[in-house]
Write a protein that binds this DNA or RNA. Structure first.
Length: 394
DNA sequence: AGCACCCAAATACCGGATCT
DNA sequence: AGATCCGGTATTTGGGTGCT
């Protein structure tokens, strides 16, 4: 499917997919084996049980089955995802209605939207949906952290802005406000899962699968916790029963000097690409000149330039082997669930290193660490409802 | 190792300039 | 005249360095 925002995420998607690959791999195998086994046993029981009447497969029932196939993801009880997704039978695009306006500007270079606090920006959500599918569709919009390790944590309004907000109680906690006539604020405080997260749900027009979403943003990225400051506005196309059919993510930064911040990020991107190309030319030429440290290698974690960090990490792959200093960590966690999250994050961290290093030995050694942690995590036997929605994509 | 200090980058705030 | 833009400046933040 094509999306004007598509190219942005293509690269990003690859990166995320690579990292998630390790994180989700064991979950997937567990889901697949357990779910399949359970379903199969249920089916066998039903077939063997004379009292159970199996429904006849009519055209109608086939249609019903079609709608409940895993292609339409059921997100309930799972964390929201920022990975782009679109069901093969439909097409869905999300674009800002204009490249710039009062209080916002869209950077083509960064493929990122920069907004001023309290500013209002419109998005065109266009879909192509075959007539064979249901007619009622909704778009759910929520702000989600782009950091994979923090996607399980909801983005909440800061106390500062909350205290000044004299608006209606039901929308005070929402960072993203909707100005559409038809809309519904959903979610509740600290809701961890997709359906619990603060979001706004807007129906698509009945005659044409299109809607213009007018949104307002009432907190800044700096209001959120350090790791959550890289955010994406996630648009999810939902059927009436709440199944996901498409997902589009627009990286956004809500700040005061949105134009300057955009220019800063664009300049940083240019500099980083120049530095990388000069490094590459050095390494390709004679290696007499060691890359010297120009100034201090400072990098504030929260001030990163979004996905381009990931690009940088990938492009700046390391050829020299990593000197490993294995160490065992033993500590007690308050709950199995939290322990599992810690192990998930550990797998994510090592996976990132696997991607950075070109040396096959290093990769293999790191994969050993990942496998060990994975084994330990699997012994925790935590309900798989905690995995991200995308796990079902595979 | 722990601490204080320094420094650079990021960001918010503010006021003047420009536009509508 | 009000809205918006833009640039200067202050503040915050976190990494690096050197001292104890």
């Amino acid at each position: 499917m094509s999306s004007p925002l598509g190219p942005v995420h293509e690269d990003d998607d690859i990166t995320i997919a690579d990292e998630d690959m390790f994180v989700n791999a064991s979950q997937l195998s567990l889901i697949n084996s357990e779910v399949l086994a359970n379903n199969l046993l249920t089916l066998v029981d039903q077939v063997n049980d004379d009292t159970v009447i199996l429904p006849a497969l009519t055209q109608d029932s086939l249609t019903e089955i079609k709608f409940s196939l895993p292609s339409s993801l059921n997100p309930s009880g799972k964390y929201p995802s920022v990975e782009e997704f679109c069901h093969e039978e439909i097409a869905c695009t999300v674009v800002p209605s204009s490249n710039q306006g009062a209080g916002f500007v869209y950077s083509e270079k960064l493929q990122k939207l920069f907004l001023k606090t309290e500013s209002i920006c419109s998005f065109d959500v266009k879909c192509e949906i075959p007539n064979t599918l249901p007619t009622r569709w909704y778009v759910r919009v929520m702000l989600v952290s782009l950091a994979p390790e923090l996607q399980h944590e909801p983005i909440m309004r800061c106390y500062n802005h909350l205290a000044k907000d004299s608006g209606p109680e039901f929308m005070r906690n929402h960072v993203v406000r909707c100005k559409n006539e038809l809309h519904e604020y959903v979610g509740h405080e600290n809701g961890p899962f997709y359906e619990d997260r603060f979001a706004v749900r807007v129906p698509l027009d009945l005659d044409v699968p299109y809607v213009k979403l007018t949104l307002q943003f009432v907190c800044q990225n700096t209001c959120f916790s350090l790791g959550q400051r890289r955010t994406g506005l996630v648009f999810t196309l939902e059927s009436e029963e709440g199944h996901i059919w498409a997902r589009r993510t627009v990286p956004v930064k809500i700040c005061i000097n949105y134009r300057r911040d955009m220019l800063n990020e664009e300049t940083a991107l240019q500099k980083s690409s120049v530095n990388l190309s000069s490094l590459a030319s050095l390494s390709q030429g004679n290696n007499r000149i060691k890359p010297t440290k120009v100034g201090r290698p400072r990098k504030r974690t929260y001030a990163s330039v979004g996905k381009y960090d990931q690009k940088k990490i990938r492009s700046a792959s390391i050829k020299t082997p990593l000197s490993l200093e294995p160490c065992a960590v033993h500590f007690e966690m308050p709950s199995i669930r939290m322990a599992k999250r810690v192990l998930d994050n550990a797998i994510g961290m090592i996976s990132a290193q696997v991607l950075r290093f070109e040396d096959q030995d290093t990769k293999a050694k790191l994969m050993e660490f990942i496998n060990n942690i994975r084994l330990q995590r699997d012994t925790l036997m935590v309900n798989n409802s905690q995995c991200s929605v995308d796990s079902e994509l595979f």
